[in-house]
């Protein structure tokens, strides 16, 4: 196995200045991304930010226009079948193998990994893990959206991958299916996962680290707490004065409120101070970056 030749500790995914261009459009404008061993990283961003393109390049399905990319120490453009056997891939929408049965497909697919992996998932155990035991002999085409997605994850896990890609795993889910899916992902402790989502709550729930991608650039990278801290202290202050509503954002909200009372005393009504949460951070970042690009 290859390792990175510099001082950085070897990471599972490592991109430097990753660029992608379709015709005249730059979709990725120099993305730096690392995913460490055992880490769950969410690539978060609005639609069209380049999340799927990034993941497809890492999976070796798409040739990049520029930059340095290493996945499991290998350039995905040159990844061979042995490299491929170490990856689990769950793409956005699968409709394949609708006529196959759940167990049949998983058992068929696991055979491919046996020559490469020390241990592949036992098919029945895997079906259990993703909660499809009672559907094991159903035709795949008859599964519900949530069941189908769990099967997709099972397919991704068949070879006990060193790295699992999940591209927008819960798009179109109802809240119940989404919750079940999140529980499933959390059960996969120890698996290195790179997932994309445009759902902030999902990123916060599942990921150790969140990388925010907007218009082909990484605009923030850190844990949910670190990201929130970026505009910590800033808070929204809302109150009514002489019947008139006031809303403003204050860096020193406590000080602002103290002065407010000193000045107006009992005339201040319905006071509300709300600290910026991750969502505000995210929306602010997206807005800023989109303004810069526009």
């Amino acid at each position: 196995m290859q390792t990175n030749d510099n001082q950085r500790k070897p990471s599972v995914v490592d991109t430097r200045g990753l660029r992608m261009r379709y015709g005249p459009t730059d979709v990725l404008k120099g993305v730096d991304l690392t995913v460490g061993q055992g880490e769950v990283v969410a690539l978060l961003g609005p639609n069209g930010a380049g999340k799927t393109t990034t993941i497809e390049i890492l999976e070796g399905f798409r040739k990049r226009s520029g930059g340095d990319v290493r996945v499991l120490g290998v350039d995905p453009d040159e990844g061979d079948e042995a490299w491929r056997a170490r990856l689990g891939v769950v793409l956005q929408s699968w409709r394949d193998h609708g006529r196959w049965r759940v167990r049949e497909l998983l058992s068929y697919l696991s055979a491919f990994y046996e020559p490469y992996r020390e241990q592949v998932f036992d098919t029945d155990e895997l079906i259990d893990v993703v909660g499809l035991a009672e559907h094991a002999h159903k035709r795949i085409g008859t599964l519900s959206g949530g069941q189908r997605r769990r099967l997709d994850v099972a397919v991704g896990l068949v070879g006990r991958p060193d790295l699992l890609f999940l591209d927008e795993p819960t798009v179109g889910f109802d809240p119940e299916a989404r919750r079940e899916f999140h529980e499933l992902v959390r059960r996969l402790t120890g698996t290195t996962i790179l997932l994309t989502t445009h759902d902030l709550t999902e990123a916060e729930k599942l990921a150790d680290r969140i990388v925010i991608l907007v218009s082909g650039r990484v605009v923030a990278d850190g844990t949910a707490a670190e990201l929130a801290a970026r505009i910590a202290g800033k808070a929204e202050v809302r109150y009514r004065l002489d019947g008139q509503e006031h809303v403003l954002s204050a860096a020193d909200s406590t000080g602002y409120v103290r002065e407010l009372f000193a000045e107006h005393g009992k005339a201040v009504e319905d006071l509300e101070v709300r600290r910026a949460d991750l969502e505000d951070v995210y929306l602010a970042l997206v807005r800023e970056s989109e303004e810069v690009t526009a």
Binding site: E81, R95, D96, F112, Y116
Partner: peptide
């Protein structure tokens, strides 16, 4: 049809899957 529904991509995502 298999290209449209992703069966082929699934084969590509599997080691030696295309051959099979």
């Amino acid at each position: 049809m298999d290209r449209e529904d992703g069966t082929l991509l699934r084969a590509k995502a599997t080691p030696n899957g295309m051959l099979a």
